[in-house]
């Protein structure tokens, strides 16, 4: 085959032109951008640090103060005369603070039994993605409750009889951007119980979860199965169902619940209302986050 010099020149020009064109469209970033997968921590499993009544697998960020206002109205089925429960209200005011990405503390005071509670929440294992990922988060919570009202007629007049303690493990996983589920085995110890039939140590397991309905709204469910409740007391397992609505600096948790209590001792041992009979209350939690410590950057 004989190739004429002229056609060779033409071919060279075409080739050169195509090379130049490729130079403008080619991916310059290829080989420069680091594309190796990295281990990344999973955040935003819940909109706030509580599912509804329980601690969630989500932590506060370091330097964040979370002012929490919790509100439960009376029974919805109490009739129009009580304005469907809205005439009655029980509150808990609380402050939580994020000491680090893995450690938070908090205190609160409830109007019911004038009870103060405090807790420490620690996350030794945080869910992550990428190489060497951990598929779940594991947290531990310990807390104390102190009743500060007048002594009841039966209780011994000792300070220790006002105290209860709880410890909880939270095993949770953000399965998808929308779905998060968690399990929380819980032990509650009461220093004083009214009768022999009431156990001092109460065992329970919490089930919590959320499904995001949109970027800023999620449907949450929070339930505890209590295993050794004194059956004579007619106490029910607490169940709350509601919505998280996030509006910038606030998270509103609007829900229905049969639990009057807003700390672990009360909702595990004094939930006398029954979903089955319609003894439920409307409630809301408002979480307002303040950044107290400036972040780096």
């Amino acid at each position: 085959m004989i190739v004429k010099p002229a056609s060779l020149l033409f071919g060279a020009v075409v080739l050169l032109m195509s090379y130049r064109a490729a130079g403008q469209n080619e991916d310059l970033l290829k080989g420069v951008v680091d594309t190796t997968p990295k281990k990344e921590k999973v955040y935003n499993a819940f909109k706030s640090s509580r599912v509804i009544m329980s601690q969630s697998m989500e932590m506060l960020q370091p330097g964040v103060l979370d002012f929490r206002v919790l509100h439960r109205f009376g029974n919805v089925n109490s009739g129009a005369g009580e304005f469907f429960g809205l005439d009655h209200a029980s509150i808990r005011l609380g402050l939580d603070y994020g000491l680090s990405n893995a450690l938070s503390i908090g205190v609160g005071r409830s109007s019911y039994k004038k009870e103060i509670d405090g807790f420490i929440k620690y996350r030794p294992v945080q869910q992550s993605t990428g190489p060497g990922a951990t598929p779940f988060s594991l947290l531990g919570v310990v807390g104390t409750t102190i009743q500060t009202g007048l002594y009841s007629a039966t209780a011994p007049h000792q300070f220790t009889s006002r105290l209860a303690y709880y410890g909880q493990l939270i095993l949770g996983r953000k399965f998808t951007e929308r779905l998060t589920l968690q399990l929380s085995p819980t032990l509650l110890h009461r220093n004083y119980v009214e009768t022999q039939a009431d156990p001092n140590d109460l065992f329970a397991t919490g089930f919590g979860g959320r499904i995001k309905l949109s970027k800023r709204v999620s449907l949450n469910v929070d339930y505890y199965a209590v295993f050794n409740q004194n059956s004579a007391r007619n106490v029910h397992n607490p169940l709350s169902i509601g919505f998280d609505i996030e509006t910038g600096g606030h998270v509103f948790q609007l829900h229905f619940t049969n639990a009057i209590g807003m700390n672990e001792r009360v909702f595990l041992t004094e939930t006398t209302n029954d979903w089955g009979r319609g003894d439920i209350q409307f409630g809301f939690n408002i979480s307002r986050a303040f950044q107290l410590k400036k972040r780096k950057g």
Partner: peptide
């Protein structure tokens, strides 16, 4: 090429909302 998660903010919530919402 800009990695979106590498943006840092003064407030933690800003960063969370930036990434999530």
């Amino acid at each position: 090429s800009v990695q979106m998660k590498s943006f840092e903010f003064e407030k933690a919530l800003m960063q969370q909302h930036f990434n999530e919402n």
